[in-house]
């Protein structure tokens, strides 16, 4: 491996890294918002909306992100909806992630025993107070492992953005391999930057998971 080549590539990778991280986390926050809303609608059986939500979850959980992105980026402009590659990236990731996050939140909601609702109602709490003070905090701490697994999954999924010509890490690596044939160096940096992007999340994630488990279960 040629160190000079690696050093000369680093600035390109750093730029791509920040783009990937930015779109990745924008997508994840969007996914969390969509997921919580959808899980709420389904768990509390809000008429009409819950039907739509279930269809949404099934559609997005059972199709690949790459296909979703192709449809949004190349297909939708043909019927008049044009969006930039970057927007397409995080909207696509947010829609895919929303369907996964919804499942995580939903199992969180389901894990709160019905008797918690009853004892809160017996104390005179209103439906709104019941949701915010009793159900949501418990549901979220139960959802933590699922949410963290999804965060890592979604950060990994960012690797397909290059297919809609976003200049992310994959795109940069592929570009450099095609241009200069310094394959080893390009691949090495690709791996290094993905490790930098994901290893801290993975480590912090398992720490948070242990803490959340301790709070609810005491183990």
């Amino acid at each position: 491996m040629n160190l000079d080549v690696i050093i000369s590539y680093i600035p390109l990778y750093i730029e791509a890294f920040f783009l990937t991280v930015k779109i990745g986390w924008l997508g994840i926050f969007l996914a969390l918002a969509i997921g919580l809303a959808v899980a709420f609608v389904i768990h509390f059986k809000i008429p009409f909306l819950s039907g739509i939500s279930i269809v949404y979850i099934e559609l997005f959980r059972n199709t690949p992100l790459l296909v979703q992105l192709f449809f949004i980026y190349f297909g939708l402009p043909k019927v008049g909806f044009t969006i930039s590659a970057e927007t397409c990236g995080y909207v696509g990731l947010g829609l895919l992630g929303g369907s996964y996050m919804a499942e995580a939140f939903r199992s969180g909601f389901e894990s709160v025993p019905k008797s918690q609702t009853e004892s809160a109602l017996a104390l005179g709490l209103s439906r709104k107070q019941l949701f915010w003070s009793v159900i949501l905090p418990q549901a979220i701490s139960q959802s933590v492992p699922g949410i963290l697994a999804n965060v890592i999954f979604l950060l990994k999924e960012t690797s397909v953005f290059s297919a809609i010509s976003l200049m992310d890490l994959m795109f940069t690596a592929k570009d450099l391999i095609g241009l200069y044939y310094d394959t080893k160096e390009a691949l090495f940096l690709l791996v290094v930057f993905y490790i930098v992007m994901l290893l801290p999340v993975s480590i912090i994630g398992s720490f948070i998971e242990k803490k959340a488990r301790f709070r609810t279960l005491g183990v």
């Binding site: 025993p113 008797s115 918690q116 009853e118 004892s119 809160a120 009793v134 905090p137 418990q138 701490s141 709070r215 609810t216």
Partner: peptide, 8 residues
């Protein structure tokens, strides 16, 4: 019967 304190 099952106490039902709020665990959080």
């Amino acid at each position: 019967q099952s106490y039902d304190l709020f665990p959080h």
